[in-house]
Design a protein around this nucleic acid. Structure first.
Lengths: 213, 213
DNA sequence: GGTGACGCTGACCATATGGTCAAGTTTGAT
DNA sequence: ATCAAACTTGACCATATGGTCAGCGTCACC
């Protein structure tokens, strides 16, 4: 409330418009893929003239990158609780639930990611081989520590991550398939609860995680 | 060697060319998606002039459908051994290994599928809600039978399928990510063995499947 | 060896798409 | 009020793309 008084319209407007474009672009890229998403469609989704998009994001690729970065922030900020002094059961449980919540609340983001990876990750190669690899390496060490302490059975930590990512993200990426098989119009509490429960069960019992720390 | 002698060039040529186009198209669709795959690229992959593709497959969509159908055949023919009188441990193990083998041998096929589903399955809607739903319903009944017999813990069979599909197909669909995290150039015996072992472990122990029938 | 159907292809076309631009409008500081 | 910078946008452009077509080559059959 203090300070310059007005809402600094200039800079704020810019940021708001950029955010609006990014938020509108996410579902378009998710449903059409990079190549399939047209600037016209992206503009329509943001309720802006096409030329205006180019004013804020010079090229389609720049806009796509921005969407990807935007998602990555949320993705990585949803950090897990896989830390050395934690309780394995709680940690895995929390991680799985967090991932499932993300699949439920931002399915488009997950789809944009899936698309990018499917294509060979042309824009995210460096992130995959850099930040992600480091993160997984670090967390894998934690899990190996738990194993050494006899808190769980010996498993390949990295492959365990692949399994958890796959099982949780499939509820966002392949929702059409899941809805078709379950014969429901949309995935609701019921479905996500059942899915989460099963995944937790597979991971906790599958890895022989001892219930209490 | 017996019979008409020659290789019935006309009809055989037609089928061979169609197969060649389909086989060549699979990786193109897998890596570029439907929208991203251009007829020029598809033609180049098949080493044929573009107009020739249109001679065999009238439109791009027709060609795409054919690729999808071709894959579906292989996919469904790789039927599992989840039958009432079977042994749960063997059945799941066999199913997981079969799926992993498919991910290894025909990753492009899996990617084309993933793409299609991600897009909302515009071409496969009927299959998902028809053949696939029926198949899963049938196999789910088998699993529920095993549960009733006390051969394994009570789990939601349908969600178990989602989990198995996700875990196994991720080795094809998200190979770039897996390769990046594992820091390897390609996924070989080593990686597939580790992945298969982990998935089997998660499913068998996670579902409390009794070792012997 | 003639012939008609099938197979093949370069050249062409209409459209869609990413991107540009010049001209107009709004905004904030002086 | 003035002005420059930031924002907005309709019209336009070069290119890429899916698809067409007329004409040529080839093969099986008589």
């Amino acid at each position: 409330m203090a300070g310059k008084g007005a809402i600094l319209p200039r800079e704020q407007l810019r940021q708001e418009t950029e955010q609006r474009i990014l938020r509108a672009a996410e579902p378009v890229f998710a449903e059409a893929g990079y190549a399939g998403a047209t600037m016209a469609a992206l503009a329509a989704a943001a309720s802006l003239p096409k030329a205006n998009l180019h004013y804020y994001f010079h090229t389609k690729e720049a806009l796509y990158r921005a969407v990807l970065d935007n998602i990555l922030t949320v993705w990585l900020s949803a950090t897990d609780r896989i830390v050395p002094d934690g309780d394995p059961a709680r940690a895995f449980s929390h991680y799985i639930r967090t991932k499932m919540t993300l699949s439920r609340l931002r399915p488009q983001a997950s789809k944009v990611f899936a698309n990018e990876i499917l294509r060979g990750a042309p824009q995210l190669h460096s992130v995959l081989g850099g930040a992600l690899r480091s993160l997984v390496a670090e967390k894998s060490r934690v899990i190996e520590g738990w194993i050494a302490q006899g808190l769980m059975d010996p498993v390949e930590p990295r492959h365990l991550f692949f399994a958890i990512w796959a099982m949780t993200q499939t509820y966002a990426d392949f929702d059409v398939q899941i809805r078709a098989v379950l014969d429901v119009d949309r995935l609701g509490d019921r479905e996500f609860s059942a899915g989460t429960a099963l995944i937790e069960r597979l991971v906790l019992r599958g890895c022989g995680v001892r219930p209490a720390g």
